[in-house]
Amino acid sequence: MVGSRFLDLFEVYRPRLLVTMADLLAHEGAKLHLRFRDAPRTSLKGVLVPDGQGGAVIDLSFGISVVDAVRDYDLTGSDFAPTDLTIEMLYLVEAKSAAMEASRTLNKRLQGARVAAEEQAFTDTLTGLKNRRATDHILGRLVRTGRDFALMHLDLDFFKEVNDSFGHAAGDYVLQQVARILVGETRKDDTAARVGGDEFVVIFVGVSDRHRLSDIADRIIARLERPIAYDGQKCRISGSIGITFSSGRADVDPADVMQEADLALYASKRGGRAQHRFYDPTMTQNAENDAPFGV
């Protein structure tokens, strides 16, 4: 640097437009913000004092940029005076960095634990499907956002006989196979859930085509009627299905949708099982007429 012009080595970026020695001398005592013109373009702060001979002495400091300087120039404690408060500042910066990293790590762990807890709270542990709580949450969200959906309520036929004949382990295995079948009939935005012992719900988002839902229901019923092998035994079940839609209504209540699918399901049961029915308003009227007096 010896023999070089100061303004050839340093760029003064604050105050702006200081490009000559006269400009610098005019800012005696003012804080200057500078950086090297060549890489690494380390930032410095300085204060200028004229030397009375047309030149000046400038006291330079890294300031807060000392953190970058330590990195850029591989500085160590021996590069600073023992009484320099910069060392203490660097310790504080290091401690803060360590604390922030520990905080980020802890936040990630807590967030992961929260997500896992929420997922567990919304998951049926036996089948891996969503549970009744998740179903209510999803239906409420769909209603709030105004998205159309179809709801399919499935109840297994003859499931009690499987438990009675082969034990609850066989029943659990059958439920897991049913879950696999339902997942195979859903898309990414759809939801398959176990809402009771042998009751399942499937929510099809944006689906309002009766023929499409009818085909899906027929495929599910056909697959359920295939014997399920367990421990050398053949477990035989079937399924009854009720279907309803949210579309075409001014106001949609999730509880009403579930009730409609339930009525359609039991119409399938009364019709001989292993079939599906779509909800229609006469089912509600029939249910009211069949209710005991006073209920």
Rank of each mutant, 00 (worst) to 15 (best):
E225Q: 15
H211Q: 15
D218Q: 06
K188M: 11
V178R: 04
S214P: 06
R147N: 05
H153Y: 13
K188I: 14
I203D: 01
A192E: 03
L154Y: 01
G184Q: 05
H168D: 10
G239R: 04
S214M: 05
N131D: 08
I241G: 03
I203G: 01
A169S: 15
R133H: 06
D190H: 00
L175E: 08
A250T: 15
K188S: 14
R180A: 14
V201I: 15
L156M: 09
C235F: 09
I216L: 12
A192H: 05
G167R: 10
D157H: 06
D172P: 13
T244N: 01
M152W: 01
E185T: 06
R212D: 07
V195E: 04
V201T: 13
G239C: 11
Q177E: 14
I228K: 05
H211I: 14
T186N: 09
R133L: 12
R226T: 14
D231G: 09
G146E: 01
I220Y: 03
V143I: 02
H153D: 00
L175A: 08
R187E: 11
S246W: 00
E161I: 10
R180F: 10
T135P: 00
V252Q: 00
L224E: 04
Y173G: 02
A150S: 07
D231I: 08
D157W: 06
V162I: 15
G167E: 11
T244D: 03
G196Y: 02
L142T: 01
D172T: 10
G248K: 03
D251A: 11
E199K: 02
A170R: 13
A192I: 07
G248D: 04
R141N: 15
Q177N: 13
L182D: 03
G167T: 11
L182G: 01
H137L: 15
L154F: 05
G167W: 10
S240C: 08
T145V: 09
T145S: 14
A169P: 05
T135H: 00
V202H: 00
A134I: 06
A229V: 15
S214H: 09
D155G: 10
I243Y: 01
I203Q: 01
A179N: 07
L139P: 02
G239V: 12
T191C: 09
G239A: 13
R212F: 11
S165L: 12
D189T: 12
G184W: 02
